[in-house]
Design a protein around this nucleic acid. Sequence first.
DNA 1: CTTATTGCAAACGGTTTGCAGCATT
DNA 2: AATGCTGCAAACCGTTTGCAATAAG
Lengths: 146, 146
Amino acid sequence: MTVEEIKEKLYARGLKVTPQRIATYQALLELDGHPTAEDVKNYLAKNYPSITLGTIYNTLNTFVNNGLIKRIKSGSESTQYDVVLESHHHLYDTVSGRISDYYDEGIKDLLEEYFREHEIPGFEIEDIQIDIFGKPASQRTEENEE
Amino acid sequence: MTVEEIKEKLYARGLKVTPQRIATYQALLELDGHPTAEDVKNYLAKNYPSITLGTIYNTLNTFVNNGLIKRIKSGSESTQYDVVLESHHHLYDTVSGRISDYYDEGIKDLLEEYFREHEIPGFEIEDIQIDIFGKPASQRTEENEE
DNA sequence: CTTATTGCAAACGGTTTGCAGCATT
DNA sequence: AATGCTGCAAACCGTTTGCAATAAG
C-alpha cells in the first residue's frame, strides 16, 4: 500500500494526516502477525526514533475508533477466571465488557463435522472455542421498528 | 460443592489446604459468570476481610497452574492490533503458544446460518471468532510410532 | 488562525514480587 | 521441625492522561 493510499484512508475518516499516523500505519502493514504498540515503536526506532510510545497508543486508539484497524486482545481489563472446566463458548458483551458462558453442543457437532471435511494442514485440533461478540439485544427499540 | 470436597481437590494436587484457598475457591463457585480477582476480594469482604488481593492473585495463579480453574482473558499481556479487518479466526498452538490467523469464509457462512436459526436470547451478535486450539500435526513423531 | 495532534512526564490500574512471619503438614 | 503460604508494601508493566508546544487544515 502506497503512502498516498494511506493518506487517503486518513483523509477519508476526517483525520489529520500526520507523519506519526502514516508511520504507524506503515509499521502495522509491514509487521507480521499481530503487533503490539511496542512492536510498532521498535519497528520505527530506526527511521523515526522521535515518535513516542504514548503517541503510538493514541494513534492506535484513533485507528481503532475509526475502523482502520482492529484490536485483537485488549490487555487493559482484568483477568477473568472460570471454575467451569468443560469446553464452552463465550459471549463478549462489547458494551459492558462482560463475558458470559454459552453452552451449545450443536455448534460443537457442527464444527467438528466441518473440520472433518476441511482439515487444517499441519494442525491437529484439540479444542474449539467460539467467541461471540455482540451486545444486549435491543429489545424492540422504537426507532428500529419498521 | 462441600468444603470437604474442596479440601480434597486441593489435597489431590498436593497443595496445602489453607483457609484462603478454600475461601477463594468457594467464592469462585458462588460468583456468577467469570469473576476477577477483585470480585473475589469483594465477595470475601464480609466473611474474610483480612485476605489480601495479592494472596488472591497468588491463589488464582496456583489454581490455574494446577488445573483447578481456567484463565479466560489474560490481562497481563499487551494489546495486539491487526490491520486486517476481515473477520478471521485464530489458531492457538498449545505447544508453542503461538497464535496465527486462519481465514475461512466457509465457517462464517456456516455459523451465520446456524445462528440465524438458533438465536441467542437477549443477545445481538456482531461478530464471531473461532479460537482453534491444537498442535502441529504429529507428522509421524518418532516416539509415537511403535 | 483554529483546532487537533504531539511529546513529555506523571499517574493509573491490574498484577507480580521480595521478604519476614506464620500456618500447614 | 521443615516447608510452603500469607500479608504487606514496593515495584512493575502496559496504558492513559494533562498540559504546553507544535503542526495540520
